[in-house]
């Protein structure tokens, strides 16, 4: 960050203002939930919300995101979670334990930071996949059943996460 033009600085200032106020609303909502909406708690709550907002902006710089992306992610996540639960329950209850574990190196297409972390966590919660290790180039994914179509599962997660953060992905390097 050497020479930032006036335009960029203004843009960044606008971004922090926008995400700052959004985060403040979110923290206020959490406070309201935690205190069951007790009116007299805001004497403590208001400064806490302010403090939390300042701390969050300092620790996690504002990033872009898309509301439609988030609204599409939620039903996708819920549905795949249910599927994943049923899938793993079926395998544990089956007398012959039908699993065929394997390991897959998924090359990153998402930018570093929050999008990658978000994908790694989603991968661990959705059917048949578990984030084992992540480095600069790859996400190591442990597979419960390597015969299953895990590639499309991973690609689907990647696309949904990218849409949430308003990122357009580079074309797949897998080249099929």
């Amino acid at each position: 960050m050497v020479a930032r033009t006036v335009d960029q600085t203004e843009h960044l200032g606008f971004m922090s203002l926008r995400s700052g106020s959004l985060r403040a609303v979110l923290f206020a909502l959490i406070w309201w939930i935690l205190t069951d909406g007790a009116t007299d708690s805001w004497l403590v709550g208001a400064p806490m919300v302010l403090l939390a907002t300042v701390a969050s902006i300092a620790l996690l710089p504002p990033s872009s995101w898309s509301l439609t992306g988030i609204m599409r992610f939620v039903p996708f996540f819920l549905w795949r979670s249910l599927y994943g639960g049923v899938d793993v329950a079926r395998r544990t209850l089956h007398p012959r334990l039908p699993i065929a574990p394997g390991l897959f190196y998924h090359p990153w297409r998402l930018p570093p930071g929050l999008p990658r972390l978000f994908m790694a966590n989603t991968v661990s919660l959705l059917p048949g996949t578990l984030s084992a290790e992540l480095d600069a180039d790859y996400l190591q994914v442990h597979l419960l059943d390597e015969q299953k179509d895990f590639l499309s599962e991973l690609e689907m997660i990647e696309q949904r996460v990218a849409a949430m953060f308003g990122i357009s992905l580079p074309p797949s390097s897998r080249g099929e």
């Binding site: 793993v88 919660l125 578990l130 442990h142």
Partner: peptide, 9 residues
């Protein structure tokens, strides 16, 4: 795998 998926749901 068993713990994360089943407990999530």
């Amino acid at each position: 795998h068993a713990l994360t998926k089943a407990d999530n749901v």
